[in-house]
Design a protein around this nucleic acid. Structure first.
Length: 796
DNA sequence: CAGTGAGCGAGCTTCCGCTTGACTT
């Protein structure tokens, strides 16, 4: 509550309180909770994560001095450090309570260094759950900072910096400026590129699947029995001849098999599984899930949302026991301790769970409610009994063949955890075996009502969604709960990957139906499954991946992270020195960087498309400084080389000579409007219409090659109307000054400058004098602001 | 915001992990 607004206030506060014990944790929400447990001799503050990092200038590592890291206080942490320094000075003991993992240990060490704490005043404590007994136990068992673990973190940090800051500039030089590469992101891109290659190389095959509807021969009022023949046919004539055989065959139940089965609940949520389920069940992007989870965490509704642990505290288990017994009864209770399966897991926190399981819903917006409910259900279900199922298989003999029809059914005899929650699957739900089966006896004759032979196509692997990519990365041990979402946004921001939909392709499906002794043939149209919000590699992503695979296979190898993690573990256990580990890696890596830098050409992915019929020059497609483009002619040719950028949706891999040549038709004159010519052209920010020296962007639905005058006029008029509707007020006395409605609310536009209108002022009621006052005030504060703000603030 | 792509050369871009606000033309 005591928000310090100025230095004097902090000093007064510190003098008044004379803090005996200062506890520092990573997260402010955690600090608030813990303070309640510890009593008034303890002040709990947060470091907001790491407080120092390698210098942003240059490598930030002095290679010659045994890879000595050059640490700097992160610009956005100066203020926190100031405050912590003051409190630490007063305190008798400083309790460093960052997480118990590699990064957490390093945070404690950086704090000790930055706050210049004498070792005697430091108490390092750890806890895995935010409960009173856990915190009290932690305070009773302080230890020292584990320098081996800190070394392992420095190795991790330095390795990532060396890889990222040596590879990226090489890409600027060889491929395109402002690109990036790194241990995590480059592998993520590679996964997507390789999946796309698999899909391109996939050859669809089809088979005929035969299913029959059978009836019992006695009273014709029983349930139909849907059964699948256990053999599939490759060719239509084979399927047809089998149906012909069935027309005259007899059918008999050869056996009925019943088997009990169980289904167990999924473990409580980790970051990765929460992202996957929220995507499947709620349609959330990975970023949205994290945003909403953060809101729930900050309002105290759920435990920490960046975790790789499936563990629940005893407190939570107790709540689950109480709730399940009271709501569903003893029989539904089955408390379990789950163990993580992912290899790199560091388990510094609990699984993601509701703070109070007795709240089965919370307030907040719709997204918060839905996500909370999902977490609640998953947590409760994880402590409930297995579902019990009876699986039945009815085998049906066909006279004259040795294969059988099999009807499968499933009956839930005890629902157990299914009463609350069922995990979804990424796979297409292929016919579920949940039909109700009639009671039949062994040896009983059956007859068919219809038998269908249906052409089925094999399907390529699905492309990755954000969430399924996270799942794969977790399996490979690449990235951490705190970086999954940012990594996915980075590879999209670099334009290595785009999120897009793909319509299914229509194809023909042959259906043969045996009904009342006759076979009917039908050809139906079917769409192969469409993909929504999937990750597709771009030309740039494919090219950069090709570059890295060609020259730096070691880095993009799927085992690279796993291998270096092993080396970090050696350091953490004191068996090896971090500088030596880094040195042995760097020698070979840096040599390869130099070699590639000196001895290779620009890497443009150039592809010859054919010859330009007009000039007779060669036409190429490649990646240029500004992205994918086509060019006519080479530098050695006579006359100038011509260039044109690719349109959205076009790719180097698929563009034809004809399509390439059309790109040189810009700017396209498309007639006059209000006495001035209009032209469609392609600019840095996409296709646009130019008219009377003004620019009007085309929408993504417009094809710049096809837009004609009527559509162009529509676009021009639409933009004019929109601009008009944004005008709140104009002043005849001062024509250059307008009050406008913008993305961030109302503002004053004057010449080329813009001024924000302070909150609480009605923009339509402002007089010219009011406007001038706002402008003068802004100019004033602008001056003082630029006087004392730090340079190098973060940009978007 | 707006038609770049040669070549010159200035100055810029970039990594992964830990954490939240600040504040936008």
């Amino acid at each position: 509550m005591n928000n310090c607004r100025g230095d004097w206030c902090c000093i007064l506060l510190a003098m008044k309180m004379m803090v005996k014990n200062l506890v520092i944790v990573e997260s402010p929400a955690k600090a608030k909770t813990i303070e309640k447990f510890l009593g008034k001799d303890f002040v709990v503050k947060s470091s907001f994560g790491h407080v120092r990092d390698l210098s942003k200038k240059g490598l930030g590592v002095e290679v010659e001095k045994g890879f000595l890291p050059q640490y700097e206080i992160s610009p956005d942490k100066e203020k926190v450090i100031q405050e912590l320094k003051k409190l630490a000075k007063e305190a008798e003991l400083v309790w460093l309570a960052s997480d118990e993992d590699r990064e957490g240990e390093a945070i404690s060490w950086h704090l000790a260094e930055t706050l210049k704490l004498e070792p005697a005043r430091i108490r390092r404590i750890v806890f895995h759950e935010i409960t009173r007994p856990a915190i009290e136990k932690a305070v009773q068992n302080p230890r020292e900072i584990d320098m081996n673990l800190v070394s392992a973190q420095q190795a991790r940090r330095v390795l990532d910096r060396l890889v990222g800051f040596e590879l990226s500039p090489l890409l600027w030089k060889k491929v395109k400026p402002a690109l990036s590469a790194g241990r995590v992101q480059s592998v993520a891109v590679r996964l997507i590129v390789e999946r796309e290659e698999e899909i391109n190389n996939f050859v669809t095959q089809s088979q005929f699947r035969v299913t029959g509807q059978f009836l019992q021969s006695g009273a014709g009022n029983t349930l139909p029995l849907k059964a699948e023949y256990q053999q599939r046919f490759n060719r239509e004539d084979e399927a047809a001849s089998f149906l012909g055989h069935c027309a005259g065959a007899s059918f008999r139940v050869s056996s009925v098999e019943k088997k009990p089965a169980r289904r167990s609940p999924a473990p409580p949520f980790t970051t990765s599984t929460l992202q996957q389920e929220a995507a499947r069940k709620l349609g959330f992007s990975v970023a949205k899930t994290m945003l909403v989870a953060q809101q729930l965490y900050e309002s105290g509704k759920i435990t920490y949302m960046r975790t790789d642990s499936v563990n629940l505290s005893d407190l939570a288990l107790g709540q689950a026991k109480e709730l399940i017994t009271a709501s569903f009864g003893e029989r539904y209770l089955h408390l379990r301790k789950y163990k993580t399966k992912s290899k790199g897991a560091q388990e510094a926190h609990e699984a993601i769970r509701p703070t109070y399981l007795s709240n089965d819903s919370v307030g907040g917006d719709a997204s918060q409610k839905k996500l909370y409910e999902l977490i609640w259900k998953r947590t409760v279900a994880s402590q409930m009994s297995d579902a019990e199922i009876e699986r039945t298989a009815i085998n049906i003999d066909v006279s004259g063949t040795d294969q059988k029809f099999v009807a499968k059914g499933e009956v839930i005899t005890f629902d157990g955890f299914l009463k609350v929650y069922m995990e979804s699957s990424d796979d297409e739900p292929e016919d579920r075996d949940d039909q109700k089966l009639p009671a039949v006896k062994k040896g009983e004759p059956l007859h068919y009502s219809s038998i269908l032979a249906e052409q089925r196509y094999t399907q390529h692997q699905p492309r990755y969604s954000e969430a399924s990519l996270v799942k794969k990365m977790e399996e490979l041990g690449i990235g951490r709960p705190s970086t999954y979402a940012p990594t996915i946004s980075t590879i999209q921001k670099r334009e290595y990957v785009v999120k897009a939909d793909k319509d299914g392709q229509t194809r023909q499906v042959i259906e043969l139906t045996l009904y009342a002794g006759h076979i009917a043939r039908m050809v139906k149209k079917e769409k192969s499954f469409a993909e929504k919000s999937k990750l597709f590699p771009t030309d740039l992503g494919i090219l950069v991946n090709q570059f890295l695979e060609q020259y730096f296979m070691d880095i993009v190898d799927y085992r690279f992270t796993a291998d270096v993690e092993e080396a970090f573990d050696e350091i953490a256990s004191g068996k090896s020195h971090w500088n030596k580990m880094i040195a042995s890696f760097y020698k070979k890596f840096h040599q390869k960087i130099e070699e590639t830098s000196d001895n290779t050409q620009r890497f443009s992915g150039e592809k010859l498309l054919g010859t330009d019929p007009v000039s007779g020059k060669k036409v190429f497609a490649k990646i240029g400084r500004y992205g994918p483009m086509v060019q006519i002619g080479e530098t050695d040719d006579e006359g100038p080389v011509k260039f044109a950028g690719l349109l959205k949706g076009q790719s180097i891999a698929t563009i034809t000579l004809e399509e390439a040549l059309k790109l040189f038709s810009f700017p396209r004159e498309i007639g006059d409007f209000e006495g001035k010519p209009m032209a469609v052209a392609i600019g840095r920010f996409g296709p646009y219409v130019r008219h009377n020296n003004k620019f009007y962007s085309l929408t993504s639905k417009d094809d710049p090659l096809r837009v004609e005058a009527d559509r162009a006029i529509e676009i021009i008029l639409a933009k004019r109307a929109k601009e008009l509707s944004n005008i709140i007020k104009k002043f005849d006395e001062k024509p250059g000054l307008t009050i406008l409605n913008g993305r961030f609310g109302p503002y004053i536009s004057f010449g080329k400058e813009n001024f924000k209108i302070p909150k609480g002022q009605d923009p339509s009621a402002l007089s010219l004098a009011d406007c001038e006052k706002i402008m003068a005030a802004a100019a004033d504060s602008g001056k003082t602001k630029s006087g004392n703000t730090r340079s190098g603030t973060k940009k978007k």
